[in-house]
Design a protein around this nucleic acid. Structure first.
Lengths: 119, 119
DNA sequence: CCATTGATTCAATGTTTGTTGAAGCGTAGA
DNA sequence: TCTACGCTTCAACAAACATTGAATCAATGG
């Protein structure tokens, strides 16, 4: 991930409705959510949602697939992790002030990666 | 850090010139850089830089202090790490697809935190 | 084939954001 | 105190962004 992509991803996340979309999709897991369900959950019109979904897709943070009449959106985990990795690499630079708290947060997390850090 | 703050921080980083400012300040370390030096390094006018610095300061990503005629800006490490931590907590949710690569990036990093992970 | 449902495209609009140049404020040195 | 320097404030403007409603497209069921 280069600077241009990272900035685009940050810009995509720097909008309330888009951020909520990503959050909802990450929470939903790999199965994702249909556009209609997303619109309801986030509280925006279908038209407006489409606009934001395009933006997020272009930033590599989400992906979509058709399933019958619905279009299912899901989080692009790789894009998200690349963004975190880029942020850490960029901020780390020999300074634990930034990285340590991030790792601490990860350790407190309930996921397998967090568990591994406990060992 | 709540959602509102996180979105503001992402929006702040989602602009090329602002992103470069943060990068330059993180690289510069705790000593920071004078506004003039920053303007030169990022390649924007003094007026424009002030605009972006205000934006970043308001997002909690940088801080400033006066030193003689100059005003020295420096990275707010706490704000940055809070952002990373928030992103990881929000994205992790029991899924190693996101967290694992981030940790891998950290491990490859040359900083003390990365070194600790090697052990 | 027609009607219906789910989602996108299009055009229009109001709002926010980024950029610029001129003017102003604070600090330091002569 | 006068001048120079560094940075910020202000006002103005252009560009980008977010939102809306009407029209359109794709898939399904009767």
């Amino acid at each position: 991930m280069d600077e241009r992509q990272a900035v685009a991803a940050f810009a995509a996340l720097g909008q309330e409705n888009r951020f909520r979309v990503v959050r909802a999709l990450v929470t939903a897991g790999p199965d994702g959510l249909a556009a209609g369900a997303l619109a309801t959950e986030v509280g925006v019109s279908a038209t407006n949602l489409t606009f934001h979904l395009k933006e997020l897709s272009h930033a590599g943070l989400i992906q979509s697939r058709r399933e019958g009449k619905s279009i299912i959106y899901s989080a692009a985990y790789e894009g998200l992790s690349n963004l975190i990795a880029f942020l850490m690499r960029d901020c780390c630079q020999g300074r634990p002030e930034v990285c340590d708290p991030a790792v601490a947060a990860l350790s407190a997390c309930d996921c397998p990666t967090g568990d591994a850090l406990h060992a």
